[in-house]
Design a protein around this nucleic acid. Sequence first.
DNA 1: GCTAGTCGCGGGTATATACCCACAATATGG
DNA 2: CCATATTGTGGGTATATACCCGCGACTAGC
Lengths: 134, 134
Amino acid sequence: MENGNCICTSLRRAARFSSELYDDALAPSGLKVTMYRLLKQIRDREFESLTELADHLDLERSTLGRNIKVLERRGLVARHQGADERAMNVELTQSGEDALAEAEPLWFAAQKEMRSRLDDSVDDLLRLLDQIEA
Amino acid sequence: MENGNCICTSLRRAARFSSELYDDALAPSGLKVTMYRLLKQIRDREFESLTELADHLDLERSTLGRNIKVLERRGLVARHQGADERAMNVELTQSGEDALAEAEPLWFAAQKEMRSRLDDSVDDLLRLLDQIEA
DNA sequence: GCTAGTCGCGGGTATATACCCACAATATGG
DNA sequence: CCATATTGTGGGTATATACCCGCGACTAGC
């Protein structure tokens, strides 16, 4: 509970805690919450390039590239050359689809636990978090 | 703004944004917000061991050890053997004191910027973040 | 159509973070 | 006092994250 009233420190700490909560919930699927999130985006959306996806997620390109490489090493996604020879297409493998399908109800349970901790103030929290990114 | 409504993802994103804000503000001091926070704790509190400090900060022991090693490499803290030959004492060097003194007003400015973004809902946010760690 | 700029990406480096395991020092139970 | 448990750290490994730089691919101005 000690944070010297530093808002940033409190946010970082809450992010650590909640990551642990979600990661634990997702563990049976072999995914962590970052991987889950990324797989879901790759499955459900069309992107021209990693750059575009990175912008969408507010992540650095190089960070996204490394995160995707983790998924690739685990055989959850595969990369192909896109139309443009610079751009990279990424698609879920069957393993990736399976892991994601297994993870979805687990994610939902974590989300529910989080909601209960927040005592139905989830929308307030999300609104405040959005304000930070102004 | 896209997060699939995942509370954890929103928290992680907000932590990234706010870290960037504080890190930028603190840049002239050569510190990042994690280092600032850690230096302040080391200066202002007495700890028997790294383990105790790690508990206090809700950080893994090994994480704290590595974070402190960064401060040590930069000459901001020095380690000595404690009474117990297992335990490690850490103290700020003069460089550490100076950097921290330089950083304090910069931290305050970041904090103020954050408060303004949150439109005086800071206490609400901190209360919600605490609830997550229940 | 060549030159110059822009775009997409990876790699190097650094920090922050966690987990597990091993080792050394201390405390504890008989 | 010795065997055992506990405590305090560090190192190995992995992920998440960012910054900077360079290279190869495309595009636009002329």
